[in-house]
């Protein structure tokens, strides 16, 4: 099954008339089958707007989203979303959270539990099947959300800063887990992030966005070998990629900061 994601000419404006803000302007890109692409940009570049649009949760935009050439509108089973905020259902234990999508589709219980167990193990949560989210750490809760999305077996995995609320060390460890899973499943993935190291650690390609209006500024191909172990994370090449990205982003981020300070002042 072809799993290429195409995003074409997406534009989004908020408000009307003179006070209108263009959040995203004419953004186009593809994610090839099995590829891991990150979209990086400063706060306020319209990353989350794009995320919601590609996932089909907002309709009032210009532009087109297609999976394997087929235009999709509205939420679609081909696309699985992992949200930035905590989204594990607090009233369901781990296994029932992970089996949620399957339950919605009416999959028989035995089959559902088996598949859910598989994905629980995949994200490394075996032994915690009967726990509720309140009994887990933030990183574990986010892994529950990822397993829930993967269990629905989407062709495209779409993630919006899933590790934003976690500490740096947990992030790195979870990043390793995510690439491991992605390589294992050959899962087409689009990750939205504002973390430079995370983008370089995980991606095949990185799309850099500008501050308002959000446009694509540059595409960076990451030619680091996989698996990206500690040697690579500490290598000069890795550092060079991060520095190069920062060179691009610095200007955009400082424009964002000025705008925020202007608004506050």
């Amino acid at each position: 099954m072809d799993a290429t994601l195409s995003v074409e000419h997406v534009t989004k404006r908020f408000g009307m008339g003179e006070t209108a803000i263009t959040a995203v302007e004419d953004v186009s890109f593809d994610v090839a089958e099995g590829e891991f692409v990150s979209l990086i940009g400063p706060s306020g570049c319209g990353k989350s707007t794009l995320f919601h649009f590609i996932g089909g949760l907002t309709a009032e935009h210009g532009g087109r989203v297609a999976v394997a050439g087929e235009t999709i509108s509205g939420p679609h089973p081909a696309i699985g979303m992992v949200f930035q905020e905590e989204s594990a259902f607090p009233w369901r234990n781990v296994i029932d959270n992970v089996g949620f999508a399957l339950e919605l589709r009416g999959m028989p219980r035995a089959e559902r539990l088996e598949r859910a167990r598989h994905y629980v193990a995949l994200v490394g949560l075996q032994g915690f099947e009967r726990r509720h989210p309140s009994e887990l750490s933030g990183g574990m809760r986010q892994r529950v959300a990822i397993a829930r999305t993967l269990a629905a077996q989407p062709r495209i995995l779409l993630m919006d800063e899933p590790f934003a609320s976690l500490d740096e060390q947990t992030r790195l460890l979870l990043g390793e887990k995510v690439t491991e899973i992605q390589q294992q499943l050959r899962q087409t993935t689009l990750l939205i992030t504002h973390s430079l190291t995370e983008a370089v650690q995980l991606s095949d390609r990185i799309l850099v966005m500008t501050f308002r209006p959000g446009r694509l500024r540059r595409v960076v191909q990451v030619d680091l070998p996989r698996p990206r172990n500690d040697d690579i994370l500490t290598s000069p090449e890795f550092g060079a990629y991060v520095a190069e990205l920062w060179g691009d982003l610095r200007e955009e981020a400082s424009r964002g900061l000025q705008a925020a300070e202007h608004a506050a002042g």
Binding site: L57, P75, I79, M81, S87, F89, F100, A101, L104
Partner: peptide, 24 residues
């Protein structure tokens, strides 16, 4: 976000009510 999770999984109206809104 809990409602959005449901929507992204093409939840039906009845399921949204039973499985997300009521428990929440």
């Amino acid at each position: 976000v809990l409602v959005d999770v449901g929507r992204s999984l093409q939840i039906t109206r009845g399921q949204m009510f039973r499985k997300i809104l009521i428990p929440a």
